[in-house]
Amino acid sequence: MKILVCMKQVPQKDAPLKLNETATWIREDVSYEVNEPDAYALEEALRQKEKHGGEVVVITSGPARAQQVLREALAKGADRAIHLEDNAFVGLDAFNTARAFAAAIKDEQFDLIFTGLQSDDYGYAQVGVILAELLGWPHATIIMQIEKTDAGIKVKRELEAGFFQFVDMPLPAVLTIQSGINKLRYATLIGIKNAKNKPLRKVALADVQSAIGNNLQMIEKLYIPQKTKNTEFIEGPPAEVAKKLVEKLRNELRVL
């Protein structure tokens, strides 16, 4: 099986974030890491390859620093990497990101494309789904398990409230992978050394420019939530107070 894994570099989970000067995004001088669901997607791809043979290719879009994500994936066992390298990919909307990926892989024949369920920075959960649409492939989201069948694959999807759905799908297909589906491996020191000799193809913005349009998303303002304190007394008979309180907790504060 030939599998493509889309991976994103995101700010480290517990890194203290500072707003940039125009308050439109965070300052660049934070530590970055692999988006967590993407790490699980990569692990799943590597496991599928170990079972069924084939090739694992990783792709990312982002500035030079994003290459670290690809290096780590190659060190863990991916066979080669594709880097859409440009600052313009930072904050690009999901539709155009998917279009850029589709353009970058137009000469390849994958059986499966994995993405993480969503990215830990924007959290849209859209790139995988849109990419499937652009390619005209079926897709399934929130995947917990993948089994190869004679006709294609059988996947387990996580639904709400502890329910699961099993779906039989033909190949090729796009799957968005849930965190925790497997146990992540480490990049070994030998893996890191070997990664140096693995192919990494760079794709410039100009190479995919004709396939994408203007960024459809713009952040006007980011701010740190203001702490406010508001005390309200509910008066009346106890039964009525209780009823009002429940209403407020449910509808205004949404904690019930």
Partner: peptide, 13 residues
């Protein structure tokens, strides 16, 4: 990049 990756990997382990 490699030095950082080596360090981070060992740290995580």
């Amino acid at each position: 990049d490699d030095e950082r990756l080596v360090r981070d990997t060992a740290r995580k382990f």
